[in-house]
Amino acid sequence: MKTHNLSKENSILNSFLSELRDVNIQKDAMRFRRNIERIGEILAYEMSKSLTYQSETIQTPLGEHSTKLPKNDIVLCSILRAGIPLHNGLLNYFDQAENAFISAYRQHKENPESFEIVVEYLACPSLENKTLILADPMLATGQSMLATFEALKAFGTPKNIHLISVIGAKPGVDFLKKHFDKNVNLWIGTVDENLNEKGYIVPGLGDAGDLAFGQKLQQ
């Protein structure tokens, strides 16, 4: 798996990431969602450079113009619920993409520090020979990303696979490298070094789903 860490270069992306982390700014849920959406747009733009392009002639009111346009059949799949703002940002740029949605959550056992990933709801078109973009804003342990990808295999074999995240942890990135082949690309806003004992990114930003949509009751 090839990792594209956008924070390694200076850009406006760093401003949006800083606002996501800031405990005072992130109290504004609408701005929090919008910042994730804007980061999704930046990640989409960078990812678009790796797509397949073909020359086409466009008719303008005054003549013809030749340009190169992307030709990938894209399926954009986001992990609910935190993935919704990120999905919107990606969809703003890949507006012709087909869409898939999948739910995945941590189910804790007796030990609150151990969990398994449960996948329930899944709606997906055929993935056969298409470009799959699998998006989850927080890449902590990497288990959610892997579990959802395994669930998507029933819908066909993609030609290309791109993973998209806003913030990740190095252990999660390393975990995915062991399970995805070298042709898979990870596009990520930034990578933090650590996970805490509960598997949350440190320093991270907290629970992206709760910050975007409000706290949920724990089952």
Rank of each mutant, 00 (worst) to 15 (best):
M1E: 02
K2Y: 00
H4W: 04
S7F: 02
S7I: 02
E9P: 00
N10P: 07
L20P: 06
V23M: 09
K27S: 11
M30T: 10
R31V: 01
R33K: 15
I36E: 05
I36P: 11
E41Y: 00
I42L: 09
Y45E: 08
E46H: 10
K49F: 08
S50C: 00
L51S: 00
T52K: 14
Y53C: 00
Q54G: 10
Q54W: 04
T57Y: 02
T57W: 06
I58F: 05
I58L: 06
I58V: 07
Q59H: 03
T60A: 03
L62T: 11
E64F: 08
T67R: 12
T67F: 08
T67Y: 06
K71M: 14
K71N: 13
L76K: 12
L76A: 05
H87M: 12
L91K: 08
Y93L: 09
Y93A: 01
Q96A: 05
A97D: 04
N99L: 10
N99M: 04
A100K: 03
R106K: 09
Q107V: 05
N111E: 13
E116N: 12
I117Y: 07
V119A: 08
V119T: 12
P125I: 01
L127R: 03
E128P: 04
E128S: 01
N129Y: 08
K130H: 09
L132Y: 07
L134H: 04
L134K: 02
A135C: 10
P137H: 13
L139W: 06
G142S: 09
M145V: 11
F149L: 11
A151N: 04
L152I: 03
G156I: 03
T157I: 04
P158D: 01
K159H: 05
K159F: 04
L163A: 05
L163Y: 00
V166I: 09
A169G: 08
P171V: 04
L176F: 03
K178Q: 05
K178I: 07
K178C: 05
V184F: 03
V184I: 11
N185F: 11
N185M: 05
D192R: 14
D192T: 14
E197N: 15
E197C: 15
G204I: 14
L205A: 14
F213Q: 12
G214F: 10
G214Y: 11
Q218P: 05
